[in-house]
Design a binder for these strands. Structure first.
Lengths: 214, 214
DNA sequence: GCTGTTTTAACATGATTATGCGGTTGCCGG
DNA sequence: CCGGCAACCGCATAATCATGTTAAAACAGC
């Protein structure tokens, strides 16, 4: 066995903190350096304990785990961070992953798996709750996402919208589609009605956000 | 308990197939409809068994699991597919995920977790080996690349650009920033010069593509 | 202090866009 | 056969945008 993995735990809930601490301490190969209730002194904590792995709650008094994450990765990108949270909303997850989290566990994860997660991240894995993983995957499988629901846009209207999204002027679109400028106007009008917008830009932004008119 | 989850297993290795089959059959809530050594008749297999979840090896004689995957998702996108494999190269993983796989397990996964994975995917999760998850995450963390280089845009110009990207009119931007309409025009002009564009839309599209002016 | 950049601003003109109010063709389903 | 809808077109007006020219105040660096 190599040197034990140095772990730092941040969790404001006392029971949970002590519970996890107990498990980590009891596990061979792990060296729990500290279990702290907040992350406000993250820089000194890191300097003092030189952890390999940081287990971190997201919601804590003072600085949140999400705020601390970039700091950790900035100080030493090699530190593997696993976030613990009760929230699984897309926003948080992606922010966390973009900021460099290596794992993302929901708090209903069995304690044993939390311990396992420490070994996983240390060994180059990325433990995550399977529902979190699904959200991540859906990012890849984009084609499935769109709300085709309220599109209502006709084929031609989509042509026009695609034109807008390429940054074309009405005139260019008219040329490209071989129709008159006024016809383009006509279609645009209908597109705006259907998308409930009233400018090129809004239409484009809306099309990009929801519909995605590929 | 609801109706059992209908499972279809494709695995050419006889020992492995029978081992997993045994486990699946022994698990309450699962209904293993068939365990087949190849995927060459995938269409009729699906039609015959109407599975909820498909467990599929990648390397099989004849058609591979990767080839079968799009067929499965085309026939019924609701079928959840978990791939089993010994390979964890990026290429395969991403192709699989893009094609709609919901889970990706390496074959060294403990049998119990394979069973668990079936429940996971059925319930909207995406079980994956943590090393696979890591590769997926790295895809997100890549975006460190963008060329912040040639911005050249001043702080104020970025403010204006951000306004455009929210779909605001000049007037709105002027209001929001508490400056005059003409000043906005002024800034916009400079932004266009620097970005080498000559319309709102182009500026927005360009800003989104390269710079990303968050 | 001088030079350069940023930020502010005004005035002006032509181009493009947003909207309103018309139309004419087809094609599809009742 | 008819009503509805997609796709086509035109004319008109107001709003917004793109661009040119010019310039003052604030600030940064040498």
């Amino acid at each position: 066995m190599n040197a034990p993995i140095k772990v730092l735990l941040f969790e404001d809930n006392r029971d949970l903190r002590e519970g996890i601490s107990f498990l980590l301490q009891a596990t061979a190969g792990l060296d729990l350096r500290a279990a702290l209730p907040h992350v406000n002194n993250i820089r000194t904590d890191l300097a003092a304990h030189q952890p390999d792995v940081v287990l971190m709650d997201i919601n804590m008094p003072g600085m949140t785990g999400l705020e601390a994450l970039p700091i950790v990765k900035e100080i030493n990108p090699k530190i593997q961070v696993v976030l613990l949270t009760v929230f699984d909303d897309d926003e948080r997850i992606f922010q966390a992953l973009r900021s460099g989290a290596s794992g993302y566990l929901l708090k209903n994860t069995p304690p044993g798996e939390i311990v396992q997660a420490v070994f996983d991240v240390y060994n180059g894995g990325s433990p995550m709750t399977s529902t979190v993983a699904r959200k991540v995957l859906q990012f890849f499988q984009q084609p499935v996402k769109p709300i085709v629901a309220d599109h209502d846009l006709s084929a031609r209207e989509l042509d026009i919208l695609r034109g807008l999204m390429k940054g074309y002027s009405y005139k260019l679109i008219a040329d490209e589609l071989g129709i008159s400028l006024d016809t383009v106007r006509s279609h645009i009008r209908n597109v705006y009605d259907k998308l409930q917008v009233n400018s090129k830009t809004e239409a484009i932004l809306k099309a990009m956000k929801e519909g995605w008119v590929g």
